[in-house]
């Protein structure tokens, strides 16, 4: 199982689509590694610069509603994985993106909008740690520490434990 948690990258916008996470022109790559430098290249969010210092050492993304909408491309979770980001926390996800995250053994955590607002209030230098067993996460910043409980389905949890859907399905079917 992957290690979850670390420095947070805040993306303060709803409806970020998978074209913005990884543009279509890179879909001709047949290795995941080649995607790495192009993460969020076309994303337009107030105050976000994809090349700024700090993006590179992020491990967790905190964002708003309907994250990962649009194209089914699993290149979106892969480009996060290649950049060592394997947790995305949002108020809601597009279905295919959410399933792709769990299918890759990564975490897509949904929290109510009020909780997302509180996560955003931590901003600068915030870190998130995840207690996977206990379905809890904690954000820590200059503002202090704040815990949150989340829920994911039994199936999604099992996928993360198995290291993804291929291993789960191969063992079972």
């Amino acid at each position: 199982m992957k290690e979850f948690g670390g420095k947070v990258l805040f993306l303060d916008r709803s409806d970020i689509n998978t074209d913005e996470i990884i543009p279509a022109k890179y879909l001709t790559e047949i290795s995941k590694e080649a995607l790495k430098p192009h993460m969020l290249e076309d994303l337009k969010v107030e105050g976000f610069d994809p090349w700024a210092a700090g993006v590179a050492d992020a491990r967790v993304i905190v964002t708003r509603a309907n994250f990962g909408c649009g194209s089914s491309r699993e290149h979106a979770p892969w480009v996060f994985e290649m950049n060592d980001i394997n947790v995305v926390i949002a108020s809601s996800f597009a279905r295919i993106f959410r399933q792709n995250m769990f299918n890759c053994g990564m975490l897509a955590i949904e929290l109510p909008e009020s909780a997302i607002d509180r996560l955003f209030s931590h901003k600068e230098g915030a870190k998130v740690s995840v207690d996977f067993e206990g379905n809890k996460l904690t954000i820590e910043s200059a503002k202090g520490k704040e815990p949150f409980e989340y829920s994911i389905s039994g199936f999604d949890k099992a996928l993360v434990e198995a290291g993804g859907w291929v291993d789960f399905a191969d063992a079972r079917y």
């Binding site: 089914s72 491309r73 699993e74 979770p77 295919i96 993106f97 399933q99 792709n100 299918n103 890759c104 389905s153 199936f155 993804g164 859907w165 291929v166 399905a169 191969d170 079917y173």
Partner: peptide, 20 residues
């Protein structure tokens, strides 16, 4: 339904897919 590459991979190998 549209799916990602991992779901597709399992579909190709096993002929199954998981949905809520």
């Amino acid at each position: 339904a549209g799916v990602g590459t991992t779901d597709l991979e399992v579909g190709i190998l096993k002929g199954v897919c998981a949905f809520r």
